[in-house]
């Protein structure tokens, strides 16, 4: 047995030693080669034979994931070399059933950014070739901007396409307003949420009315977007309606309402003070928190620390709320004394 064990051990040792040596050499030589290539100015030009080989690779239908990624790399090299077959080849890769491979082609399209690339990207968005969020990100970074070409997406049968159409229209305040307002009643809540978010960057009475209606949406995440959007578009006019959302069951809606009210600054104070006596603890807490965040509480502590209003706010906020306010004001007084 000893002899057998020794023979096996020596054989394993020989194989392992050789593998270790080979791998070590591969690491070091590979790295040397890489560093040398990096030092040389990088040329994207391809000779005819290499180009032909790469085109063949992109046209092939690889069955393995390995082959698919080699195909993507080939496409990227051809794109860097501005090969004339790229527009046609990119469509082939976009049809790859593997979403991440198709997404890699999306990136290449974003790099190209030509007019024809925009059309392919919008088409890919419609068909769901690759990740839609990835396509949207590329479309938004493009110059020239796709603008008007996005409007038809709002009428697509597929809610996912309408969602992205509405989302991508955000940087274009003059486009598709009537359709967007109409879509605030879309049967799909994701579309309604996207529309509300986009309308939040616009202005006007019709937009404001549409947003106020969404504050009572049946889906909580639509109410989240509606609270922020209404606060932005209508300002203090929406404050009494938004403060109602401070009593919401969903934390996300309450958080959005607080964000919207914070954004209004001191103008929201009357609406917030009205909530201090609310039956709901969340509503009282939320109103006190926003009053603290906009500086109203610190102002009262400095101006009139015995004010009954301050006591009401403290009662809504609780003991730790009071401690925090007093600590902040102490720090201010300390700092003023130090400066003086």
């Amino acid at each position: 047995m000893d002899a057998l064990a020794l023979r096996v051990a020596v054989a394993v040792l020989a194989v392992a030693l050789l593998t270790w040596l080979l791998l070590s050499l591969t690491v070091l030589l590979g790295r040397l080669r890489y560093d040398r290539q990096r030092e040389r100015p990088r040329s994207s030009a391809l000779d005819a034979r290499s180009a032909e080989r790469l085109v063949r690779r992109v046209r092939s239908r690889p069955r393995t994931e390995w082959g698919r990624w080699r195909r993507v790399t080939a496409l990227q090299r051809l794109e860097r070399a501005h090969h004339p077959a790229v527009p046609q080849l990119i469509r082939l890769v976009l049809h790859d059933p593997h979403a991440r491979v198709a997404s890699a082609a999306v990136r290449t399209l974003g790099d190209i950014g030509d007019d024809w690339a925009i059309d392919i990207l919008i088409d890919a968005l419609r068909r769901g070739q690759g990740s839609r969020s990835r396509i949207a990100a590329e479309l938004e970074e493009l110059a020239p901007a796709p603008g008007q070409r996005l409007v038809p997406l709002l009428r697509d049968w597929n809610p996912a396409v309408r969602f992205w159409g509405a989302t991508l229209l955000r940087p274009y305040p003059d486009l598709g307003e009537a359709t967007l307002i109409e879509l605030t009643w879309d049967p799909d809540p994701n579309v309604r949420a996207a529309v509300v978010e986009t309308l939040g960057t616009r202005s006007g009475k019709a937009v404001g009315t549409a947003l106020l209606a969404r504050l009572d949406d049946t889906e909580w995440f639509v109410r989240v977007h509606a609270a922020r959007a209404a606060g932005h578009v209508l300002g203090v006019e929406a404050a009494p309606t938004i403060t109602r959302l401070l009593a919401e069951e969903r934390w996300w809606v309450r958080a959005a309402a607080k964000d919207a009210l914070r954004g209004m600054g001191s103008e929201a104070v009357p609406a917030l003070l009205a909530m201090l006596g609310h039956d709901d603890l969340f509503a009282r807490n939320g109103a006190a928190e926003v009053l603290q965040d906009i500086g109203f509480v610190d102002f009262l502590v400095l101006d009139n620390p015995r004010s009954p209003l301050l006591e009401r706010i403290y009662a809504a906020g609780g003991e730790r709320y009071r401690d925090a306010a007093e600590a902040r004001v102490d720090a201010i007084a300390h700092e003023e004394a130090r400066v003086a």
Partner: peptide, 14 residues
């Protein structure tokens, strides 16, 4: 390969 084809610049701004 996935990482090579990731567009971190766009992702970082999007």
């Amino acid at each position: 390969h996935e990482s090579w084809s990731a567009d971190y610049e766009t992702l970082g701004m999007s």
